[in-house]
């Protein structure tokens, strides 16, 4: 049995439509019209213990809705969800003991009290021993540099400081399953890479299962062996994004700058390969696109070197962003 099981999960929201203007507002008082939005549409997937799963998709695709169902906040309209053998929305209190949740956009800490007070409260709630608690605090301080923040009330923290404290708070009890919803939002590069390292380390040493949603695809590239892509409530990709990068983005580009004037017909003739696409950038520069599975870049470069005087050459690898873009557009 997998750690997280999601079968034919559907969540429909009922939203009251607003009419425009004053007369519309008056009409709303008398008669409301409702609109049904299918945020998550019949999705199924399993996550094994110890996996780091990336969960991405464009805005409004249903990512957060799925996370909220998995954490027990939302009740699914249809389908079955089980995490660690528990049904999140039915056995909420037992369930949340086993999970850690970071919503980058909203705080998990009590607004009015100092950070350390919130931490000790969480220590009592999750029944963490004093010894373990001190160890955790020390570890978090090393990675997240939260030491100087401990005695500041939560409401006075900046976004970056708050997110760091939030991450620490949600991992205080060493939960076996961690949900990270945009955890690196608003953080600077140094802290971001610290957090990445920390997540990777936690996954490796404790076998923590991690579900990560983010818009920063480099997070995904660095951390996740497996990625789910959701769009308009449906899963459109489930697998290794690195592999997808190799399969899907087969188109490679070489940019060539020459000392002499460029005549495309001459170059085409010399190269003598059918499936090449030429784009002239200016009189001295052009781009050649080709399928990397069929044509080797070396052949092209060699021919150019033999017959022309190149000033510079650049091979463009597809970026992970381009891959995801391609998956989105294929879906449409």
């Amino acid at each position: 049995m997998a750690l997280i099981e999601v079968e034919t999960l559907t969540k429909t929201f009922k939203i009251s439509k607003r009419r425009e203007g004053l007369s519309g507002a008056l009409m709303n008082l008398v008669k409301r019209e409702y609109q049904f939005v299918q945020a998550v549409d019949n999705i199924s997937f399993h996550v094994e213990q110890g996996e780091t799963l990336g969960y991405i998709g464009p805005n409004g695709a249903g990512k957060s809705t799925t996370i909220k169902i998995l954490t027990g906040i939302l009740t699914p309209t249809e389908g079955r969800v089980e995490v660690n053998g528990l049904v999140p929305h039915k056995q909420r209190r037992q369930h949340v003991k086993n999970i850690g949740v970071v919503f980058g956009q909203r705080s998990q800490l009590w607004w009015d009290i100092a950070v350390i007070e919130a931490f000790t409260l969480l220590r009592d709630i999750y029944e963490v021993s004093k010894n373990d608690f001190q160890k955790q605090l020390k570890k978090f301080d090393e990675v997240l540099e939260i030491g100087p923040l401990l005695h500041i009330p939560v409401r006075k923290l900046s976004l970056g400081q708050r997110v760091r404290c939030d991450i620490a708070a949600s991992l205080l009890h060493n939960p076996p399953v961690v949900f990270l919803d945009e955890p690196t939002i608003g953080l600077d590069v140094a802290v971001k890479s610290n957090i990445r390292e920390f997540i990777k380390e936690m996954n490796a040493s404790l076998g923590t299962t991690i579900i990560l949603t983010t818009h920063d695809l480099s997070d995904i590239e660095y951390l996740c062996q497996r990625t789910l892509i959701i769009d308009q409530g449906k899963i459109i990709f489930d697998g290794d994004l690195e592999k997808a990068k190799n399969e899907l983005a087969r188109k490679r580009k070489i940019q060539i700058d020459l000392y002499e004037h460029i005549d495309i017909d001459v170059i085409r003739e010399k190269l003598n390969i059918a499936q090449l696409e030429f784009t002239k950038r200016n009189d001295y520069s052009l781009t050649i696109s080709f399928d990397k599975n069929e044509i080797s870049a070396i052949n092209i470069i060699q021919t150019i070197l033999d017959h022309f005087h190149p000033r510079d050459m650049k091979i463009e690898e597809p970026t992970i962003e381009a891959v995801v873009k391609e998956i989105y557009s294929e879906d449409i």
Binding site: G72, Q94, V96, I99, V101, F103, R106, I125, Y126
Partner: peptide, 11 residues
């Protein structure tokens, strides 16, 4: 949304 925060705690 503080309600959500409280729902995520085992209390």
């Amino acid at each position: 949304g503080e309600l959500i925060m409280n729902l995520l705690k085992p209390v």
